[in-house]
Design a binder for these strands. Structure first.
Lengths: 333, 333
DNA sequence: GCTAGCACTTGAAAAAGAAGAGTGCTAAAA
DNA sequence: TTTTAGCACTCTTCTTTTTCAAGTGCTAGC
């Protein structure tokens, strides 16, 4: 549906004002807020037309209009001026990302925390492209009680894992070297798929540490299969402030506590850029602004900011842009 | 203030009913709920007396009574029948605790998660007795880019730390062995205090890895100074259900987002047992049921469950009892 | 196509009345 | 002295009614 420039301007202004104040859009309000040189009567007929097209709706005859889900969607898709990545509060993201000796988990928690603080909305990160991580080194360390700790260095931080395997210190060193030599620069997915090929090529003496490697691969397979969610709920209190109604806040909190729901919502359908999902009026879902987190050009995770239908889509999109731009610039050494 | 048995019974019943239903306590309601053989008129005069003593208050003349903060406190201190640790949902706690190769962080997150799920209230764990952890082994592992990863085995799980220090593989092995030999069985606090003494006794050739050790100790000192909080907010949506008013929910969520506030609230004043703090009517704080987490007889952390003034103190106290009993049974190997 | 003017609709706020729950008090009973 | 029955009183809640003003839709004229 193509709108005239004026209708676009009116719709955009209307939605932004409504997001800011939560007070219904009236012809008078629009006249005050825009530089349009036309009377309230004209604006009324424009608003009427926008309502007929489904972008706005009236709660009651004399009460001004509010955006519909369709209105928000149009706004998001067409009117959201190309977001710029300019959020100072997000500078920390860079330093977190660049510390490659942090654990992947800490890095993810750190990012979620910062985004949540900056946007004032609950934020979720889901790691679902674990197999895309590029490996840099392996360290196997024998612990007490016949266990082994595995440090897996990746471009996006360290992953640790504990294995219930008995092995000598030499086995661990051999395995570390073997794995690092053969899979450095490759992805975890590649390693899982090809390890058997490589094992066939091993000599007898190297096979000593084979149980260790098998156990390690099993562990990685498990990690790979279970998407893991890191939910940050900073800003939950804000959900209750600021004219947000309690029912909407409850929706958001309920979604955040339902892992299944969450991971289905977090699925990125398109590719490579910010996606906005606007909650329907009647559904139990909430709105999300989400983006893929790519490292080295491959998708590792998704980040999503959750809120009610009436949320600051533009501000959040801009914040997410900072994060994903920074992450996408991270290249393998 | 000593109350007659009947007054105690009435107060107890009144508060428990109110916690359950959130409907004001009336003479008729009490008569129905208890087996007391007296008329509503008698109960009215008892309620009147309890009000005069400050345990109950009337919102308005004909509207029944609700507990005051003082009333809740009396209930908690005197009437909460000695809580029993019988929560099936908390069985998982045991298995989490016994997996000593998990990271301390994972263990704490796991416990907070389980408690939060079981109680349906936000739960916080604050590690403030880091120096009391008993050491079991050290593993220093050289990483890429002149960094070292340190695995510190403790009775309550592994702690990892990354150091920006250049060291040879041999330095790392030497340091690992040295530290493990000298400090196994001692606490982190002991090690921090006495490391200099030990260093004086070193021979020239061992001093090679001294920079590594110094850096490690500095890192531990930092960890020790910064109390760290692990906040779990499962059940936030429940805060909004069930007759909880929004203002109270907001209070709780606000407290949870204020680290300073949180850590001051989490401070355990008494020793060794469950403490309940009941929120005042007018203050911005919320109610907490908290307990110290001890390992090997020394306090490592505190766990606290946060909620509105009207919360299920008895149920939560019982859940916490399960957790701390299990943890206190954990002895060094 | 735009605007001014005006009647109309409708919710929100205020006022008034009715109903009912629960109390406090008093006098009598135990 | 304690307990109980009875009753008047208070205060909220629920309706109903009224008023008010905001904002609209419509129409006629520019």
């Amino acid at each position: 549906m193509e709108l005239s420039d004026r209708k676009k301007k009116i719709l955009c202004m209307a939605i932004e004002e409504y997001i800011k104040d939560c007070s219904p859009i009236t012809s008078g309000g629009i006249k005050d807020a825009t530089s349009l040189n036309c009377s309230t009567a004209t604006l009324r007929s424009e608003l009427n037309a926008l309502e007929a097209m489904g972008f706005l709706r009236q709660l009651h005859t004399s009460g001004g209009r509010i955006p519909t889900a369709q209105g928000y969607r149009y706004y998001v898709e067409n009117l959201l001026q190309s977001v710029e990545a300019t959020d100072k509060e997000l500078d920390d993201v860079k330093s977190i990302i660049s510390s490659r000796t942090s654990s992947l988990n800490d890095i993810i928690t750190g990012i979620a925390k910062i985004v949540s603080k900056a946007t004032n909305y609950p934020t979720v990160i889901m790691v679902d492209g674990f197999e895309n991580l590029v490996l840099s080194e392996f360290k196997l360390i024998p612990l007490l009680e016949d266990k082994i700790m595995v440090l897996i260095g990746t471009i996006a931080g360290y992953i640790t894992q504990t294995l219930d395997v008995k092995a000598t210190a030499q086995d661990c060193i051999d395995a570390s070297n073997y794995l690092t030599n053969h899979f450095k620069g490759e992805t975890i997915g590649f390693m899982i798929e090809n390890i058997e090929q490589f094992e066939k090529g091993m000599h007898g003496e190297i096979k000593a540490f084979q149980t260790v490697v098998n156990s390690l691969i099993n562990g990685l397979k498990q990690l790979n299969e279970q998407k893991y969610l890191n939910v940050r709920r900073e800003g939950s209190a804000k959900l209750l402030d600021n004219n947000n109604n309690v029912e909407e806040a409850k929706k958001v909190l309920n979604v955040l506590e339902d892992e299944k729901e969450l991971s289905s919502i977090m699925e990125i359908k398109g590719k490579g850029d910010i996606e906005v999902t606007v909650a329907d009026e009647d559904s139990a879902k909430c709105s999300v602004v989400k983006a893929p987190i790519c490292v080295n050009g491959r998708q590792l995770a998704s980040i999503g900011v959750f809120g009610p239908q009436r949320m600051d889509y533009a501000g959040i999109a801009s914040a997410l842009k900072v994060v994903i731009d920074n992450l996408n610039n991270l290249k393998g050494e």
